[in-house]
Amino acid sequence: MSGLDDMDRALLKALARDATQSAGALGRRMGLSQPATWRRIRRLYDAGIIEGRRLDLDAEKLGFGVTVFLGVKLATKGRVSLEDFERAVTAIPEVQTVEHVLGMYDYRLRVVARDISDFERVLRRRVMTLPGVGDVEANVLLSEERRPGPL
């Protein structure tokens, strides 16, 4: 897709704030017709700039009061493929994100748990038994500030 214009950027900003807005409502605020707005949004989807919509859930209100970031270093990179580790770790429901990173650790995981005891269970029974896991470092999330909006 060629470069984004100011209207595309304004649409992305508005959708990042609230992706449930209709094309008609967005268009009225931006001086576009509903069909013109929808065509622009469709073009952004087709170009892969918009990858989808997501629902943000409050983990704490759902009973997951602890979030831990794990740094995982694989012990046997030559014997266990990265794909095997990634396939196994993404099957753990408490693991919310898996990031392959460069640095001291090979992976950074975001893990949610009901409490510290629940996290210990996830760590011992699920994460530490994954193929190739070597060193693991845990950092408990104390608070989080989010920066909403497009890049």
Rank of each mutant, 00 (worst) to 15 (best):
D5A: 10
D5S: 11
D5R: 12
D6N: 10
M7F: 05
A10K: 12
L11S: 01
L11N: 01
L12C: 10
A14F: 03
L15M: 13
R17E: 15
D18P: 09
A19C: 13
A19L: 12
Q21G: 06
A23C: 14
A23H: 10
R28C: 11
S33H: 12
S33T: 14
Q34T: 03
Q34I: 02
T37K: 01
W38R: 03
W38E: 12
R40D: 07
R42E: 15
D46C: 08
A47D: 15
I50W: 08
E51L: 14
E51G: 14
R53C: 10
L55V: 08
L55H: 14
D56M: 10
D56K: 07
L57K: 08
D58W: 05
K61Q: 15
K61C: 09
L62R: 12
G63Q: 11
G63E: 10
G65P: 00
V66Y: 09
V68Y: 06
F69L: 14
F69V: 04
T76H: 15
R79Q: 13
R79G: 07
V80S: 06
S81W: 09
S81T: 13
E83R: 13
D84R: 09
V89D: 00
T90A: 14
T90M: 13
I92M: 07
I92N: 03
I92G: 01
P93V: 03
E94A: 05
V95L: 05
Q96E: 11
V98C: 07
V98H: 03
M104K: 08
Y105T: 00
Y107S: 01
R108I: 04
L109M: 06
A113K: 00
A113D: 02
R114H: 08
F119Y: 05
F119K: 00
F119T: 00
R124V: 04
R125Q: 12
V127I: 12
L130H: 00
V136A: 03
E137N: 06
L141I: 02
L141N: 09
L142C: 06
L142R: 09
S143D: 11
S143H: 08
R147I: 10
P148D: 07
P150G: 09
